[in-house]
């Protein structure tokens, strides 16, 4: 698998995801500066977390207009897999690669903690090593993760298997008590129609090694390697 990680000024999870990718891939991903305009042939593009351009104006809004994103969009439209984590998810919604918006958390605060997620579609390149309904533990670290999309569009997305993960209890119970940020229908991550682009607020790369407290996140990178090898 050949993978690239896009680096914006203000990205701060670029190294973390590169480390997790390398552990699963066995080789280092390519690090691509935001001013670059061309990407080589790739199987996976990762848009990492952080505060691209300081998140000034609106999270992800400026990054969505940086030179490299035109190329990311073009590649995505040709089917290259794209993974947006946290700020990367915000950027993907801002570019229109994914539907919906990420609003301020309902408690208006930044939240950093582990959450449980239910795998809502185990039939994609990102989750093929999971079983439908698996509960995984990933950390969240964001102030704007409150996902929203028009109800009609959401019904269509649900019908099309585009809901990737939902916040839940340790035992997989999806209820408002386990919704950390107020996201619509506890949505933590979504796919595009073709299930080739995934955006999610939680950070799989942060729990991809037992020493750090868990390795549920590694399964996502292992799935990608298996699918795209």
């Amino acid at each position: 698998m050949k993978a690239a990680v896009i680096v914006f000024p203000g990205s701060n999870c670029d190294r973390d995801v590169a480390v997790a990718l390398e552990a699963s891939m066995g080789s280092k991903p390519l690090m691509v500066w935001h001013r670059d305009t061309v990407l080589p042939d790739l199987d996976l593009i990762v848009v990492p977390g952080g505060f691209s351009y300081g998140d000034y104006l609106r999270c992800g809004a400026m990054a969505a207009h940086s030179p490299i994103m035109r190329e990311v969009k073009a590649k995505a439209e040709k089917g290259t897999r794209v993974l947006g984590i946290c700020n990367g998810f915000q950027i993907l919604t801002e570019t229109g690669l994914l539907p919906g918006v990420l609003m301020r958390n309902r408690n208006l605060k930044f939240i950093c903690k582990d959450v449980f997620l239910r795998v809502e579609n185990a039939d994609t390149d990102f989750t093929r090593k999971h079983t439908l309904g698996d509960v995984v533990r990933y950390p969240i670290a964001h102030a704007e993760g409150n996902y929203f999309v028009e109800p009609e569009a959401f019904r269509a997305m649900e019908g099309n298997g585009q809901v990737a993960f939902r916040y839940c209890s340790k035992t997989g119970d999806v209820s408002d008590a386990h919704n950390p940020n107020g996201a619509l229908s506890n949505v933590a991550g979504i796919y595009n129609e073709a299930k080739t682009v995934l955006g999610l607020m939680p950070h799989p790369e942060r729990l991809a090694e037992d020493l750090l407290g868990g390795s549920d996140g590694k399964t996502m990178f292992d799935s990608l390697v298996e699918a795209l090898r």
Binding site: A20, C112, A141
Partner: peptide, 15 residues
């Protein structure tokens, strides 16, 4: 501390 990102950089072993 839940308002502080205490895990970025991927090396926080003792939170």
């Amino acid at each position: 501390y839940s308002q502080y990102d205490h895990m970025v950089m991927g090396d926080t072993v003792g939170r």
